[in-house]
Computed example of a mutant assay.
Amino acid sequence: MIAGARFVLWQKRAGIVAMILLAAALLSLADALVGGLKGSQGTIELVPDNHYLVSGPMPPRTEAIKDFVIDGQPADGSVRLVPEAIYSGYWFGGAMWRGAIVIDPWAREGSHVLSVKDAYGEKQNPALVFKVRVWPDLATRNAHSSSFLTRTTGRNPYHFAAILALCGLIAGGINFLLGRLWARHLATHNCGEIYKRRQTALGTEITCEFRCSEAMRPGMAATIYRPSGELLCSARVASCDKGEVVMQVSQPELVRLGDVACVFLATPEISSS
């Protein structure tokens, strides 16, 4: 039996876990993207006692916040757009303003369209129109989300995607590490995985993933195993050149890619663990 078969078992498990986690991350990302496409179409969804930071260009013919005209606020003032400061834009250096949409604790459920403009009737800038939807509480807002994950868990699907992707990458790294340990273990015992199989005039040849050594010669006996250690059949070294070991197998119908071929250089068997 081949020692170290546990590396293969755990490598396969880690690979399956990585595949499942990364697939789940993609599904979470798709849920977030679909939710965004089918979602609020630019509507800012808030709950009472909440606020949302906004910014935009200065309305035409205004130089200060006191020149702003804000429309769409309810009479009780429970939903307000509060400009706070003027600053220079990052890209073109034009004047910009920043502020917040503030929802008071007693605000009632409803939709509002808040707009910022000047006092002279200039054309409304679409970038200064804010659609606001006030929900009575967070649970209600989540229940009306277009994202399946948000509706069922109340969580942001992007958070799921990020966490699942990170865990998937970690599992993939473990899979890679175990694969390296398995390959090193096989090389230590003059064994290697079969990665190529072809039919020739002399029979079925297999190519194994381990380096030639000075002690290895054509005609030497070899044995084929399953990665789990099950004995399959015998083989003989056909050639050993350019870092490849090619063998001819006695029962090719039993051999498949991923099986292990071992050459006996000194001892007739590989010690088992």
Rank of each mutant, 00 (worst) to 15 (best):
T188Y: 10
D31Y: 02
K38T: 09
N156G: 09
P126I: 15
N156F: 11
L169W: 02
A171R: 02
I2N: 04
V116K: 00
P57Y: 09
D104Y: 14
L33D: 03
T200H: 02
A64Q: 08
F160K: 08
I16M: 08
E63P: 13
T267G: 09
D241G: 08
T204C: 09
F68S: 05
V260K: 01
Q73T: 02
G168D: 04
G154V: 12
G35K: 05
R197Q: 08
C208V: 05
I174H: 08
P157I: 06
C208H: 03
V8K: 15
I206M: 02
S272Y: 15
G56N: 05
R217M: 12
Q73G: 04
S147R: 12
G93M: 05
R197P: 09
E193I: 05
L138S: 11
L169I: 04
G173N: 04
E193A: 12
T200Q: 02
G173V: 04
G154T: 13
S55F: 14
R61Q: 12
N142F: 10
H144G: 06
A143V: 05
I2E: 06
V116T: 07
A25C: 04
A139S: 13
T207E: 03
I163V: 13
R98M: 07
T267L: 11
V132A: 05
V34R: 11
I65N: 03
V132Q: 03
K66G: 15
A171I: 01
A14L: 05
D31K: 00
A119H: 12
C167G: 09
S28V: 15
K123T: 14
G4T: 00
S272G: 15
Y52N: 07
E244P: 00
Y195L: 01
I44R: 00
L53C: 11
R141N: 09
S272P: 14
C233S: 08
D241P: 03
A127T: 11
W97M: 01
L128H: 11
S250A: 13
S250H: 13
V54Q: 15
R198L: 13
A139W: 09
K117G: 14
Q41M: 08
I2Q: 04
L178D: 07
A162F: 10
E209Q: 04
L254F: 14
F68A: 06
N125L: 15
W10Y: 06
S273E: 12
A127F: 13
H185P: 03
P136T: 05
A143N: 06
C233I: 05
G42A: 02
S273R: 09
A161P: 06
A222Y: 04
A107R: 04
R80G: 10
D241S: 13
K131E: 11
L114D: 00
S146H: 10
M1I: 08
A139E: 14
Q251I: 11
H159P: 07
I101C: 09
G77D: 06
W182F: 08
A23M: 02
T267N: 14
F148K: 02
R197S: 06
I170W: 08
L22T: 07
Y158F: 12
I65Q: 07
A143G: 07
S228E: 14
C167N: 07
V34E: 12
P48L: 06
T43G: 11
G93F: 08
V79A: 02
Y90N: 10
L254R: 14
I70K: 00
R13P: 07
R133A: 14
W135N: 03
E63Q: 15
R155Q: 13
P74E: 13
G94H: 11
L231A: 11
P48K: 04
Y87P: 14
